[in-house]
Every structure is written in structure tokens, then in C-alpha cells.
Design a protein around this nucleic acid. Structure first.
Length: 264
DNA sequence: TGATATGTTATCTT
DNA sequence: CAAGATAACATATC
């Protein structure tokens, strides 16, 4: 499922492939997932905030794409034709140089919306801080946790209003690396544990970006698959790297793996 | 056949 | 009333 590293990977590829191009034609296939009319203008920039892909348009507006669980893109250079009809295409962007970008989504949890700067600001303001930003210091993390004393640590890592971009896979991986039991309530964490989690969070996300994200089930980025699945230590695994059998429970209605010996 | 996978949001509960 | 917990959405896969 696309989380911060997967979306970051896709955005970096889109910067190369479609940034600076002019949209000459748009074909909407799944009306329900596309909100607003996409204008036929240039794409000035593409960037990421949380798990959202933001395309800044030449008319001052923005196309915000959320992948949901199964959203993905296909890109075709000019002259390359689509290999058959794809029933999961949500929207097709045709650029003035003849190249083509499709946004596809099997489970239809994704969305495409056209927003003004004001609307974009409102959307972004609701999101928590970017965990890899310079501003996101250990002190900032500690202060955020102070307001969530009663909540469960793992569920809070998934809360996009708290921290942006972390999903179910990386939340479990960072808790394992930090040696923290995912069932812990925030108020029970020591300063040393919070520091460990902070470092694990940034370390895991950076490493995952280096490997172009994690491919499990159906995530693919534009140029292929990610490689971080080779580094997963607990997610959907039988044993941790130490050889201990892992436990699985549900927290926040999401499958949660952890090691009773390595995580306290 | 039904259980399972999850990002986001709506709704229910405490 | 707000924070926290849970349900709902969609559909391929096993």
C-alpha cells in the first residue's frame, strides 16, 4: 500500500516524466473518483505532501491525487500505444508531446481533485508534520506526543493529523526497530524510547525511499516495483530477524505484527 | 465461499 | 464536547 516512501518514489518519477508538459486532453473513465474539471494547461511542478501527489498547474490551481490502497500510474512515451484496454483506468492525461499518463485504481479508494490555492492550503493544514522535514525535530515529536498521552502508540503513528505519511507497514517496522511493543500507550513511553522511535521513524522512511518503497500485493511505481520488501522485519512475516516467532493482533482494525522478545 | 488486505473518512462510544 | 474506537467503502486473491 502506498505510504510516504512509495508516494515519494512516484513523485520523483513524475517530476522527470510529466513536469513541464502541457495537458492537451483529459479522458475521465471513473467519474466518481474525479472531482472538478482538469484544465488543459501546463504542469509546473509535482510534489508530495503526506501520501498525496500534488501537481501545480499553469493556471495557479492544483491537481491533488490520492492513491488510496491500489492507485498507481502508467506512463507511455509518445508513439507507444496502450497494451490493450485497462478497465482500472480512472483518468488518462494526454500531453502535447504525445506522451500519456494514466491513473489506475482497482479498489477505487483513490481520488483526483482540482483545488484552488486556498482549498489546497486548507487540506494541507489538516495534515500533521512531514516526518522527514528539517522542522520535525525530536523536540517537536515529544511535544506532539504530550497531547496524545492516552492514545495507543501504533494507532497514533497511522493518524495523518498527527504525523503525515506513515501507513500500516512502516508503523510496524519502526516500532520493531525502536524495540517498542505496539500495544503501548503513549504515556508509558520513556524519553529514551521516544528518542529511539524518532530515530527509527526517520531511518526506516529514508531507507525505504532509497529502495523505491515496498512492493507487497499490488504497489508498483511508474518504472516498476520497489525493493524494500527485502528489508521488512516484521510486516507479514513469521519470524523476526532474531528468529523469534512473531505475534499478530489487530490494532485500529489493522493487522499488527510484533516480537514479544524484541519489543517491550 | 468467506476471510483478508488497508487509506481515509464517517459515525458511534466513552 | 472531544478524543478515541470502530465501521464502511471496494474488490482481487487465496
Amino acid at each position: 500500500m502506498p505510504e510516504l516512501p512509495e508516494v515519494e518514489t512516484i513523485v520523483r518519477q513524475m517530476q522527470k516524466q510529466v513536469s513541464g508538459k502541457r495537458i492537451s486532453y483529459v479522458e475521465v473513465k471513473v467519474r466518481k473518483l474525479v472531482h472538478g474539471k482538469i484544465p488543459l494547461v501546463s504542469i509546473k511542478k509535482v510534489w508530495r505532501r503526506a501520501k498525496a501527489i500534488i501537481m501545480e498547474l499553469g493556471d495557479g490551481r492544483f491537481v491533488v491525487i490520492r492513491l488510496g490502497m491500489t492507485g498507481h500510474f502508467h506512463y507511455y512515451k509518445s508513439g507507444v500505444t496502450l497494451p490493450g484496454e485497462d478497465k482500472y483506468i480512472v483518468v488518462k492525461f494526454i500531453f502535447s508531446d504525445g506522451s500519456l499518463l494514466t491513473f489506475n485504481d482497482i479498489r477505487k479508494f483513490g481520488s483526483v481533485r482540482v483545488l484552488s490555492l486556498k482549498e489546497l492550503d486548507i487540506l494541507l493544514a489538516k495534515m500533521g508534520p512531514e516526518p522527514l522535514s528539517k522542522e520535525f525535530t525530536l523536540a517537536v515529536f515529544q511535544n506532539l506526543l504530550l497531547e496524545k498521552q492516552n492514545a495507543n502508540m501504533k494507532v497514533t503513528l497511522l493518524d495523518q493529523h498527527f504525523i503525515a505519511g506513515i501507513g500500516n507497514i512502516y508503523a510496524q517496522e519502526m516500532l520493531y526497530r525502536a524495540g517498542i511493543d505496539p500495544r503501548r500507550k503513549i504515556l508509558t513511553l520513556s524519553d529514551a524510547e521516544i528518542r529511539k522511535l524518532y530515530l527509527a521513524m526517520r531511518g526506516i522512511l529514508k531507507l525505504a525511499i532509497e529502495h523505491h518503497g515496498t512492493t507487497v500485493q499490488d504497489y508498483v511505481h511508474i518504472e516498476g516495483s520497489g525493493g524494500f520488501q527485502r528489508y521488512l522485519q516484521v510486516y507479514e512475516r513469521e519470524k523476526c530477524p532474531q528468529g523469534h516467532l512473531l505475534k499478530k493482533i489487530y490494532l485500529g482494525a489493522r493487522g499488527t505484527y510484533w516480537c514479544q522478545k524484541c519489543q517491550k
